[in-house]
């Protein structure tokens, strides 16, 4: 590589500003409709607001948790940051470099590709069944860094050591590895090209608790050793609480609350965060005192009314004001932000 891509700039590693992704849905876009319709469509086609003007930052060495129910836009947001999907608008700056301008289609060959890597949800499904563990780990290095064969083999072995994968397993195929070993291959592959930001999408969801502990501790240790930042997407709030410095709570494409993980868990402000935290299973009956259950159905993400709070209808608070004025994310305490009129 001729010029260094990552210059140590002050400020956050990742700076997401007003990032939005809207998908066009429905409408007669089929071939027949296009052939038979001579007029331009009168009304614009409905838009699904998957990620709606989201802004946040991730500092160097920070672990940020992203939580929210399925369909809230977590995965779309991750795919935007990871440059697998082109945003509709907004900016994605990685240490000062604007990544939103690069086309997702060409990003795989972009030198910046190595800087953001991802560990996928199910290590078993995301590994090529015809690649040995060594091939899987070497693949990103072959594609993104020029490295002679002997050096490459040594690097793969070093990565196996770092992630606690016994070297003799490197010649095995995914089906010959256990769940925990596959998770280690997935992590080794992601850190092979020395990323600055690692996106972890439910990396332990498919694992048993005893294996999960080992993998979480491995991730913690790698972060310390390599100085990466993590964006950690998970359903398991107990894991987020233990692993993350800060947490972002998403609801229907919007960030509704963010702040230091310890504070958010101890004192959730947004009604949705409250419901989320009170739904964590508790073995101790004393801790289950006030259960908050969400009724109703989530609002449609298709052409949402910009004046109505996204949580209106399911919110136990829901006042007429919530249906007339969308609450914006506003500061609540030193490091926290909440999007609710009443928090």
């Amino acid at each position: 590589m001729s010029e260094p891509l990552s210059v140590s700039t002050p400020g956050p590693l990742l700076d997401i500003a007003e990032l939005a992704k809207r998908f066009t849905v429905g409408g007669k876009q089929g071939l027949l409709a296009r052939v038979t319709s001579f007029r331009k469509p009168v009304a614009p086609l409905p838009q699904l607001h998957a990620v709606d003007e989201v802004s946040f930052t991730i500092a160097r060495g920070e672990t940020v948790g992203l939580v929210g129910e399925s369909g809230c836009g977590k995965s779309t947001l991750v795919r935007l940051i990871n440059r697998l999907l082109d945003p509709t608008s907004g900016s994605i700056r990685l240490a000062g470099t604007e990544l939103a301008d690069f086309k997702a289609r060409a990003f795989a060959a972009n030198p910046h590709r190595a800087r953001i890597q991802m560990v996928f949800q199910d290590a078993g499904d995301s590994l090529n069944p015809r690649y040995t563990a060594a091939d899987a780990i070497a693949d990103p290095i072959r594609r993104l860094k020029k490295m002679p064969g002997a050096k490459l083999a040594a690097r793969v072995e070093a990565l196996a050591d770092m992630t606690g994968l016994p070297r003799e397993l490197l010649s095995r195929f995914p089906h010959q590895l256990s769940g925990g070993q596959k998770a280690r291959v997935g992590i080794a592959r992601a850190i092979a090209v020395e990323p600055e930001l690692l996106i972890l999408d439910e990396p332990t969801a498919a694992l048993d608790v005893s294996v999960q502990v080992v993998i979480l501790q491995l991730l913690q240790q790698l972060k310390r050793e390599l100085g990466m930042s993590y964006l950690f997407v998970s359903h398991d709030l107990n894991v987020v609480r233990l692993l993350c410095d800060r947490v972002l709570v998403m609801y229907l494409g919007k960030i509704v609350e963010q702040g230091p993980a310890a504070e958010v868990f101890a004192d959730p402000r947004h009604p949705y965060t409250k419901a989320l935290i009170s739904a964590i299973p508790q073995a101790d009956p004393a801790q289950r005192a006030d259960r908050l259950r969400l009724g109703g159905e989530p609002r449609s993400p298709i052409d949402p009314d910009p004046t109505v709070c996204r949580f209106y209808g399911r919110c136990p608070k829901g006042t007429p004001r919530c249906a007339e004025e969308m609450p914006l994310l506003h500061p609540a305490g030193s490091a926290r932000q909440v999007a609710c009129h009443f928090a």
Binding site: S210, V214, L216, Q220, D236, L242, Q282, A283
Partner: peptide
């Protein structure tokens, strides 16, 4: 090994 009421990741044991 269950992340529940524990306070830190190091307190969990495999």
């Amino acid at each position: 090994a269950t992340p529940g009421e524990t306070v830190s990741l190091d307190a969990l044991a495999s």
